[in-house]
C-alpha cells in the first residue's frame, strides 16, 4: 500500500512542470513574489513559497523572465515579467499540455 509520503511525491512530480508554465503565463503582467504566490493559489495552482521563489530566480537565469526592483512604494519589491523567450516556451508547453490532455482523454474513453 502506498504511504502518504509516496502519494505526495507522485502528485508533486505530476505538478512540477505545471508551475513553470503557470508562472510564465501569469507573468505576462509584471508581478512580485508574494503576490504571484497568492495569485497562483487563487487560480488553483497550489505551489509552496519555498519552491516558487528559487524557481523565479532560475527562470530569470535562463532568460525566460526578467526582473526589476520597484522602489516606488514603501517596501521595495522585485517584479518579474515574462520575456519573449519565456512566452515562446510557454506557447510550446501549452501545446504539449493540450496534447497530453487529449491523449489522457482518449486513453480514459477507451478503457
Amino acid at each position: 500500500m502506498l504511504n502518504d509520503d509516496e502519494f505526495a511525491t507522485h502528485r508533486q512530480e505530476l505538478r512540477r512542470g505545471t508551475v513553470v508554465l503557470a508562472c510564465l503565463l501569469m507573468l505576462a503582467t509584471p508581478n512580485y513574489g508574494y503576490a504571484l504566490l497568492t495569485a497562483l493559489e487563487k487560480a488553483g495552482f497550489g505551489v509552496d513559497a519555498n519552491t516558487l521563489y528559487p524557481l523565479l530566480r532560475r527562470l530569470e537565469k535562463q532568460g525566460l523572465v526578467t526582473s526589476e526592483w520597484n522602489t516606488d512604494e514603501a517596501r521595495p519589491r522585485k517584479f518579474y515579467r515574462t520575456t519573449s523567450e519565456g512566452a515562446a516556451l510557454a506557447a510550446a508547453l501549452t501545446t504539449d499540455w493540450n496534447k497530453l490532455g487529449a491523449a489522457f482523454q482518449t486513453l480514459m474513453e477507451n478503457s
Binding site: Y32, G33, L37, T38, A49, Y53, W69, P76, K78
Partner: peptide, 17 residues
C-alpha cells in the same frame, strides 16, 4: 544581497497578509 532583500520582502508581505 539581492536574494536577502527579496526574501525579506516576501516574508513581510506574507506576515502583513
Amino acid at each position: 544581497t539581492d536574494i536577502e532583500a527579496e526574501l525579506r520582502t516576501s516574508i513581510e508581505d506574507a506576515i502583513e497578509d
